[in-house]
Simulated scan of single mutants.
Amino acid sequence: MSRIGKKPVAIPAGVSANIADGVLSVKGPKGALTLTLRDEISYAVDGDTILVKPANDTKQARAFWGMQRTLVSNLITGVTEGYTKTLQITGVGYRATAQGKVLKLQLGYSHDVNFDVPEGIEIKTPDNTTVLISGIDKQKVGQVAAEIRRWRKPEPYKGKGIKYAGEFIFRKEGKKK
């Protein structure tokens, strides 16, 4: 039995959920999101909650149960509060500036990196070394953060690069004399 899957997902005021043709649609103050439903799991909108249960007693249905409940919960959180990831840039001369729908990164390469911001994502740079990525889709926000981080991962000797806020970089000792 899934401890996470057993819990019903609460639908707050101002949010509407609808199941039609194998798709769960959620609309809220920040926007609308959809989730394609799995056949192994049964979903029910019951007043102000969404119930997620396995449709049968197979191993695959039990495996998907908790994950599907979490995905439904992520939809509700996304349309009410949204998601934000913070990236920190460390290194001499490394900086980022948001210019409309393009994030301009200077990461020690011979050229500037221009990252096109996808639809539904908003990027802000409160200062040269901080990048705030926000949106309503948790998966898309995380994917964009990972793609930006991939341009210059933090290295273990000086810690230079792009890292998530709160990420610990294991530091190695340099060469001994």
Rank of each mutant, 00 (worst) to 15 (best):
R62Y: 11
D46S: 08
E40V: 07
W65E: 05
V79D: 12
Y164C: 07
V144S: 02
Q143R: 15
G22E: 08
V141P: 03
D137F: 00
A55M: 01
K140A: 03
T34P: 11
P118I: 11
K177D: 09
A61M: 13
V23N: 09
P118H: 01
E155A: 01
Q99Y: 13
T58V: 03
S16P: 08
G93F: 11
T36Y: 05
E40T: 11
K104T: 08
E119A: 07
L75A: 03
L107E: 01
Y43M: 15
D39W: 13
T130I: 07
S110F: 05
V117L: 00
G142K: 04
P29W: 00
S42K: 04
I148M: 05
G159C: 12
K140C: 02
I162C: 00
L71W: 12
T84H: 05
K85Y: 02
G5R: 14
V45I: 05
Q99A: 11
V79F: 08
E147A: 13
D127A: 15
T90E: 03
W151T: 12
L35I: 13
V72D: 04
K177T: 15
Q68W: 12
E167D: 06
A44E: 10
R171H: 12
G82V: 00
K104D: 12
E119I: 11
P54Q: 14
D116W: 06
K101W: 09
L75N: 03
P154M: 09
I19R: 02
E122S: 09
T49I: 09
R62Q: 03
Y157Q: 10
D48P: 09
I19Y: 03
Q139W: 11
E81V: 08
T70Y: 06
A96C: 07
P154C: 02
F168Y: 14
S25C: 04
G28Y: 01
I4S: 09
G159P: 01
V26E: 02
N128K: 08
E122Q: 03
K158V: 04
D39F: 15
I162L: 01
G100F: 10
